[in-house]
Simulated scan of single mutants.
Amino acid sequence: MSEAFIRFVRELYGEPRAGIPLHAPVMGTREKARVGEAIDSSFVSSVGAFVTEFERQVAAFVGSRYAVATVNGTAGLHAALVVAGVQAGDMVLTQSLTFIATCNAIHYCGADPVFIDVDEDTLGLSPEALASWLEEHAEQREDGAYEPASGRRIRACVPMHTLGHPVRIEKIAEICAAWGIELVEDAAEALGSTRGGRHCGTFGRLGVFSFNGNKIITTGGGGMIVTDDEDLARRAKHLTTTAKKPHPWAFEHDEIGFNYRLPNLNAAFGVAQMERLPELMASKREVAAAYARWCKAQGMAFVHEPAGTRSNYWLNALRLADEAERDAFLAATNAAGVMTRPLWTPMHRLPMYAQARRGPLPVTERLAATVVNIPSSARMAGG
């Protein structure tokens, strides 16, 4: 199986010998030109026309009223949680099957994650598991949800759209609304993904995207908070700009803020990448379709976009029989120069989050043991 897969991937990417990465950025002359314009403007840090333009483009693309650019997705998620009201001692419901940034951002607020199981098809937070945990462990008061045993506020819920596949976010939004829990979407991997025609990251009051070097578009590092709430957007921008009060020359700050704004150089790169996004999405869906056809012919389980969604297929994935088969596949492909990787080690297995509260996690454990990410770069040249 591994040898046939390696041959197929090398044919798919037209690369007979050299290493094939998991996900490489597409960039070229237009990125160089935009960055050159930023250099010529002399605005290279967190103030400049490209920051504003990048925010405008992302907001328009996802259908949100406001966007606030940040230095990376983790910073964006941290700031969004603060803006959503998450405080020290709060509990935040999320998934264990995620990149560690999700939980770290919660921890930066002094809050604690509570791990809820995921769905087999979406790979993301299960609405049924969420509702079940709340019914068993929470009570509703006038100002929101609490855990009676500890008296702690259950302040927010952070589902993550795993590998770009949309979770059943409308159901999660309904549950959160019923319990008075803030919904903050970790859409780091989901730029271009929609559920029912609505873009991921726009179902909650706040959503966050990432533009790390391996994402569908990149600014090298970078993130974006999106919201339809003008007050939340204003506060997010203020907090991420060190909470500096506007003034022609004085440096006055009215609270503890964060130096989280995206530099103009990175934003210039992002503006050029946004010009490529439709082509990138089309190419990545073609790659996914090729994998799906091959897997069907081989009797292998390909991870398809969930029903009712359109995924950006950020990272394609296979489901293997068990952990032993997964590890053998990983060893063989990587030894042959075709990069593959498992999903993240579930957060509840990591020492810093091993003591976190959690519900039953059987699907999380199964997916972590059997899912493998495979090369997913777009097949298009820079220029």
Rank of each mutant, 00 (worst) to 15 (best):
S150W: 07
R357D: 12
A378L: 06
T29K: 05
T74P: 00
R205K: 10
R234P: 02
E147L: 06
N266E: 04
S42N: 12
Q95C: 11
E279I: 01
S311H: 05
R276N: 06
F54C: 08
D121K: 09
A69C: 10
S210M: 06
H247G: 03
P21A: 11
G213E: 13
E120V: 10
A292Y: 08
Y108D: 15
R358N: 00
P113E: 07
V303T: 11
S42K: 11
V303E: 09
L361Q: 06
W344S: 14
M224L: 10
G63R: 06
D327V: 07
E174L: 04
V71Q: 04
K215W: 00
Y260T: 00
A111V: 11
E120D: 14
G19I: 11
E53I: 11
P375C: 08
D90N: 12
L183Q: 01
Q273D: 11
P360L: 09
R276Y: 13
G204Y: 00
L130M: 12
G110I: 09
M274E: 10
L367D: 05
R205A: 11
Q95M: 12
E11Y: 09
F8G: 08
V118D: 02
I181C: 03
S376V: 04
A75T: 05
C295V: 09
S193P: 00
A236R: 10
Q273R: 08
L367T: 08
R205Q: 08
V44C: 09
L97V: 13
T29D: 09
W314G: 10
A335T: 12
I100F: 07
A356V: 05
S96I: 03
Q87V: 00
R341K: 13
V287K: 03
L183C: 02
G144L: 06
E135P: 04
R357C: 04
L315Y: 14
F61D: 01
T102M: 06
